[in-house]
Computed example of a mutant assay.
Amino acid sequence: MHVQIVLFDGFDPLDVIAPFEVLYAGGTASDGAVTVELVSAEGPREVVSGTGGLALRAGAALDPHRAGLVLVPGASGRVGGPDETPGEQPAAGERKQDDSIPVLLGRTLKTPLPALLEKAMAHPQVTVATVCGGSLVLAMAGLLEGRYATTHHLGLDMLDATGVHAVSARVVDD
């Protein structure tokens, strides 16, 4: 099985690194039956997370036709609006502090990512999974309407607002 973990500007590093480590270890233990790579909608590039300017390198473009798993992380940033930390300036290499999680997730809609995820979801040999707020990327792109999904408890109302049946649970399989 091949796993593509999607990076986008403002991604949450924990949502990427933890699954990467577990899946990589699974590949090692299974003599390569599981492979994992970091990808972005735009192709190979440095992608800045929403945490302290930490950047990871996407080694390839997301391939929505490649059989396996596509994993979409959530974003890391402020929960509220820009008025919560007035006057705060970003350090060198950091994202602007007024980037809230909904804004970071919403910016993915202006990239090729939604169209690529739609193609992946339509492919019968591709499973699309999300971590935390990653489900909001799919929901805001209109890809989960009428389906069941979950996210961080602070984002459940956003799921509902997009026509998703929000479930208060750790895991939803739909």
Rank of each mutant, 00 (worst) to 15 (best):
G81M: 02
G32W: 13
G68T: 07
K96T: 07
D99S: 09
V103S: 09
Q89K: 14
P86C: 04
P73C: 07
P82H: 11
G77I: 01
R57Q: 06
E46Y: 05
R66N: 05
L104D: 03
D98H: 11
L56H: 09
A29E: 11
L62N: 01
P102A: 05
L54V: 15
G80L: 14
A61P: 08
G87R: 02
L62P: 00
L105M: 11
G77T: 04
G68W: 13
P64K: 15
E37M: 07
V36T: 10
V79P: 03
L54Y: 12
D98P: 04
V70F: 09
G50P: 00
S30E: 09
E94Y: 09
A75Q: 05
K96R: 13
R45L: 05
G43V: 14
A58E: 03
D99Q: 14
L104P: 00
P73L: 07
R78V: 02
S30W: 04
V103C: 05
P44G: 12
V48H: 08
V34Q: 09
A29R: 06
P64C: 08
G74L: 00
G59C: 09
V79A: 15
D31I: 06
L69A: 12
R45C: 08
T85K: 11
A60W: 07
S49N: 12
D99F: 09
D63T: 08
L56Y: 03
A92H: 14
P44W: 13
D83P: 02
A60I: 09
E46C: 07
E46I: 02
V48I: 06
I101M: 08
G68R: 02
G68E: 14
V79T: 03
Q97V: 11
A60Q: 14
R57A: 08
S40K: 00
V48P: 00
G87V: 03
V70S: 00
A61H: 08
L56R: 14
V47F: 09
P44Q: 09
A91I: 03
S100G: 12
V103A: 10
G53R: 15
E37I: 01
G53E: 15
A92F: 14
R66Q: 12
L69M: 10
T35R: 08
R66M: 13
G59D: 07
P82F: 04
A58S: 04
S76V: 02
V72F: 04
P44L: 06
R57N: 05
V36K: 00
H65Q: 11
T51S: 04
